[in-house]
Simulated assay, not measured.
Amino acid sequence: MESYFQSQSGYGSSWNFDAFKNLHEISPTVQSHLKQVYLTLCCALVASAVGSYLHILWNIGGFLTTLACMGCMAWVLSTPPYEEKKRLGLLMAAAVFEGASIGPLIDLTIQIDSSILVTAFVGCAIAFGSFSAAAMFARRREFLYLGAFLSSGVSILFWLHFASSIFGGNAALFKFELYLGLLVFVGYIVFDTQQIIEKAHFGDLDYVKHAMTLFTDFVAVFVRILIIMLKNSMEKNERKKKRRD
């Protein structure tokens, strides 16, 4: 927190061409690590798309694929870093299961308006890239203070979901939970990116684990953007039907 306030005095001067070109204090080793992380992330997203396609073909997505995804992720974390190929394979398997798990939402979107899916993905990719870049170009540790606030946000989301499942929820509560969740996970993109950079500076170059972290952030943001756009499209169609009637 202290480093954050100290950084504000020189923050304006940090945004110049030389700083942008050199990515501030990011060393060549860390830059190489980030390239590996984002390449692995792209492969995981492709694997997730394959999982969604498999659900559309064979209707395999559901509770079991969600459990399988969580199991693969836990397996990645429990596997020693030197077993690189095994961990990478487990991450891709987790991505396929994750894609199958959100397959029903993808299928519904395609049935209503397939253009929503493309727009949501492009919007999520732009947001992800922008906030990741913000974390990279900022001073070291500048956004690490966000961790406590984001953890509080996740706790609020959990209790809201818990309360709505027991006492019932309305449309306003669902919308609040949806937008708060989007805000929280966008914040996690910034926080996790800078945390990955900071860990890499201290020698933690576990690109599989770091890519998995960013993958979960990307999917969380994408799902919420997709639901928001899908909900808006359905409400718009309902209004058009009422006008016709």
Rank of each mutant, 00 (worst) to 15 (best):
M1T: 04
M1N: 05
S9F: 15
S9T: 14
N16C: 12
A19E: 09
F20S: 11
N22L: 09
N22W: 07
H24R: 14
H24T: 14
E25I: 06
I26W: 08
K35H: 02
Q36N: 12
V37I: 05
T40S: 09
L41Y: 04
L41D: 04
L45V: 02
V46F: 02
A47R: 03
Y53L: 12
L54D: 03
W58L: 08
G61C: 02
G61Y: 01
T66A: 13
L67A: 12
C69S: 12
M70F: 11
C72S: 10
T79A: 13
P80W: 06
Y82L: 15
E83C: 14
E84W: 15
E84A: 14
L91T: 02
L91V: 04
A95R: 00
A100V: 00
S101K: 09
I102H: 05
G103Q: 03
P104D: 08
D107L: 13
T109E: 07
T109S: 10
D113L: 03
I116K: 08
I116E: 07
L117K: 00
V118N: 08
T119R: 02
A120P: 02
G123Y: 06
G123H: 08
F131V: 08
F131M: 10
S132V: 07
A133K: 07
A134P: 08
A135T: 05
A135W: 03
R141P: 01
R141W: 05
R141Y: 07
R141S: 09
L146T: 04
F149Q: 05
L150C: 03
L150E: 01
S151Y: 11
V154L: 12
S155Y: 14
I156C: 07
L157T: 01
L157M: 07
W159P: 02
L160Y: 12
F162L: 15
N170Q: 11
A171E: 14
F176S: 13
Y179G: 00
F185I: 00
V186P: 01
V186K: 01
V190M: 03
D192A: 06
I196L: 06
I196A: 08
E198V: 09
K199V: 11
H201Y: 09
G203F: 07
G203L: 06
L205Y: 15
L205I: 13
Y207C: 01
K209W: 05
A211D: 00
A211T: 01
M212V: 13
T213E: 05
F215C: 01
F215S: 00
T216S: 13
T216N: 11
F218T: 03
V221Q: 02
V223W: 02
R224M: 06
I225S: 00
L226C: 04
I227Q: 13
M229Y: 10
M229F: 12
N232R: 12
S233P: 03
S233F: 06
S233T: 11
N237I: 11
E238D: 12
K241V: 13
